[in-house]
Design a protein around this nucleic acid. Structure first.
Lengths: 256, 256
DNA sequence: GACGCCTATATTGTCGGACAATTCGACGAT
DNA sequence: ATCGTCGAATTGTCCGACAATATAGGCGTC
């Protein structure tokens, strides 16, 4: 090889090596203990002063570390107690974080829809396999709520809840975590669609009734098929409503 | 009704109303500015001292707010600069957070697998629609890497990368975000499977070759079908390897 | 002018200490 | 046992300080 300078690496050879601040080391230490399950959810953390002593740093430093863990959802308080306890990142928490990441990435409607198309039918099938009668009546209640909802906003909320409940019924936490951010982000578009395509609402209602029925009678295949149609319908509705498929989702819904 | 105390509400009547600390208000204020796009990625934040003046609080308080935003991925530094800048939560960041949440929830193998079953085939189909020749050769390189990988660990890494790349090719950031945590969490089980079922590796190889081929020749349906089989194979492999389907995934892989 | 070197300044990370407001925990009264 | 009461513990916030270091400006060289 007469060309010794051809770089064998792609991209920058060295990443800037992150400087480890004391606060960072402390939060990492606690984080590791939690992830390694040396600390269980519910366990109380030592007080700030104790931690400061143990780590031999100032309390302010401990505080910064704790704020970081708190924001990561690894620790938190219940009620408005003072004691920080180990928690696991709640679903709601993770869901909203994922939603925010997607919204800031300005994902398009079609991306969300494709995700729905992939996930929702299987979710419905699983729900049909696992759903109990109690679950089914919860679903029916949501559908009834959709039927009687007068304001468009209320209707949209019901639809979002329908999918959320369905994911819950599937008994699959991964699918749950996948569906919820997507439905929440789809909500604003759905709202516009309902406004512009009057027949959309009844179509949604019919499809959801069929899905619930399939779940009630424990027919996974039927649930899956109906859900596929339901999702297809969504897209049709959007096209009818003249919403461009590459519309970017906004962050308007994320007013936590 | 002779029982007047039957509560019309379910659960606790009042949630504990969250006390708003100054640090919390400050981080919320900045967060809103970012989410509402008044601050764009790359924009530098004022210095801590300036923020402290603007909010009329002490610098320590500002610091706690900043740590929170930093942990949320909304602000950060590039290189080891001192200036904090607005950033968007990187994919890697969000992926690892979701993975952690799922791992701490102790989701089972079957849940992960169901998610793969739902998402992967569609992802492959989309990859076949959008993949460029350059993309295809990147994929081929990964598959070649799998073929020549001698250590089981290396092989697993290649498989994870294959799925990651595939999601990237699909051009769908939602699917990308859905697939990556799942594949990463499946990795340890996959590793065990490969150890115990020698023929597993070649089956994986064959399936992935077919998938790549389908993408190269732009046949979404074929890609989808092959991916379905591929995912089914995974499950078969696990059963052959005598891994219980309700095995909980561990947090061992999450040593950041 | 473009480039490198050097110095002054600004900024961050950490520290020490302080204090009001709350919560916690024990203790006694009902 | 349940309910108030009271002191101690804990948190949220503030003040001020200082070393380390990134940034910006100035100066000389080509």
């Amino acid at each position: 090889m007469s060309e010794p300078s051809a770089p064998a690496y792609k991209g920058p050879l060295f990443e800037p090596l992150p400087r480890q601040t004391a606060a960072h080391r402390i939060s990492s230490a606690i984080e590791q203990k939690i992830l390694r399950r040396a600390l269980h959810p519910g366990d109380p953390l030592p007080t700030e002063t104790e931690l400061a002593e143990q780590f031999a740093v100032h309390r302010s430093t401990v505080r910064e570390a704790l704020r970081r863990l708190e924001s990561a959802g690894l620790v938190g308080r219940e009620g408005n107690s003072k004691k920080l306890r180990v928690t696991r990142p709640g679903h709601a928490d993770t869901v909203s974080r994922v939603g925010r990441a997607l919204a800031l990435d300005e994902v398009t409607f079609i991306e969300l829809w494709e995700a729905m198309r992939a996930v929702a039918p299987r979710t419905a099938a699983l729900a049909a396999e696992h759903g109990t009668p109690a679950d089914v009546s919860a679903l029916e209640e949501i559908v009834a709520g959709l039927e009687s909802a007068r304001a468009a906003d209320a209707a949209v909320t019901q639809v979002v809840e329908f999918f959320g409940k369905l994911a819950e019924l599937s008994g699959n936490r991964v699918l749950m975590l996948a569906m919820q951010p997507v439905t929440r982000l789809l909500a604003p578009s759905l709202r516009r669609m309902i406004d512009r395509v009057p027949q959309g609402r009844t179509r949604i209602l019919v499809a959801q009734r069929c899905i619930v029925e399939a779940i009630r009678t424990r027919k996974p295949d039927e649930a899956e098929t109906w859900m596929s149609r339901h999702v297809q319908d969504f897209r049709r509705g959007y096209e009818l409503a003249d919403i461009a498929l590459d519309t970017r989702v906004g962050t308007a819904t994320l007013a936590d």
